[in-house]
Amino acid sequence: MRICVDADKCEGHNRCYSLAPELFEVDDLGIASALNDGHVPAGLEAKADLAIANCPEFAITIVEE
């Protein structure tokens, strides 16, 4: 599974980072990016899914199932 944060949509709510710090990092302005070039390590798919479902800006998408 591979995910991506759309930097134009992200407004820094930090929901992704607090739900799945293994998958995201946020900068000082709160803007998120996916760690590991978006590759979700096996076993963390459910966490990625939760982050997607909680992002108020619909900024996180799945680029590869």
């Binding site: 407004e11 820094g12 709510h13 930090n14 607090s18 479902a53 909680n54 992002c55 108020p56 800006e57």
Partner: peptide
């Protein structure tokens, strides 16, 4: 678990203090 609420707003005026409030 799935809670895309917008209590802190959305878009450019997203609450600047949301991490602090939480």
């Amino acid at each position: 678990e799935r809670n895309r609420h917008i209590a802190f707003g959305v878009g450019i005026h997203r609450c600047a203090g949301s991490n602090l409030a939480r």
